[in-house]
């Protein structure tokens, strides 16, 4: 239970970074931390006490393997997270070229 709780604490730190900080790089950092926390929660749910990695060995029977389904899902999630991060960083670089700052309060044309 403490492990689940620390996972949620990690998510809250990321949420604080997304909502409170004004620097675009800090906001991207917060999104990345949220994503790590979500991936970690999936793997924690699939863990079995004293388990082994779900890889079969020739000639021996391995009991007590961990759940392979969350691992397969998280493998997809990690790669998609990389894709979203790359797009976000590209947008940040483009905004810096146009406005000369990473501070979202200084980017005047986005005010509505």
């Amino acid at each position: 239970m403490i492990l689940y709780m620390s996972c949620f604490v990690l998510f809250c730190i990321g949420l604080y970074g997304v909502m409170r900080k004004r620097n675009i790089i800090k906001i991207i950092t917060g999104i990345i931390i949220c994503e790590y926390a979500a991936n970690l929660l999936f793997i924690l749910i699939g863990y079995r006490m004293g388990g082994r990695a779900p890889i079969l060995a020739h000639g021996t029977v391995i009991e007590n393997m961990v759940d392979p389904l969350p691992q397969a899902v998280v493998l997809t999630t990690i790669v998609i997270g990389l894709a979203t991060t790359i797009v976000l960083v590209t947008l940040a670089i483009r905004l810096y070229e146009k406005y000369g700052t990473f501070d979202i309060t200084k980017i005047e044309e986005l005010k509505g």
């Binding site: 991936n39 793997i43 924690l44 863990y47 388990g51 082994r52 990695a53 779900p54 890889i55 961990v66 691992q71 998280v74 493998l75 990690i78 790669v79």
Partner: peptide
């Protein structure tokens, strides 16, 4: 947590 594929990808 016994997820070696995840570790390498990460």
């Amino acid at each position: 947590l016994k997820a070696p594929d995840m570790a390498f990808t990460q």
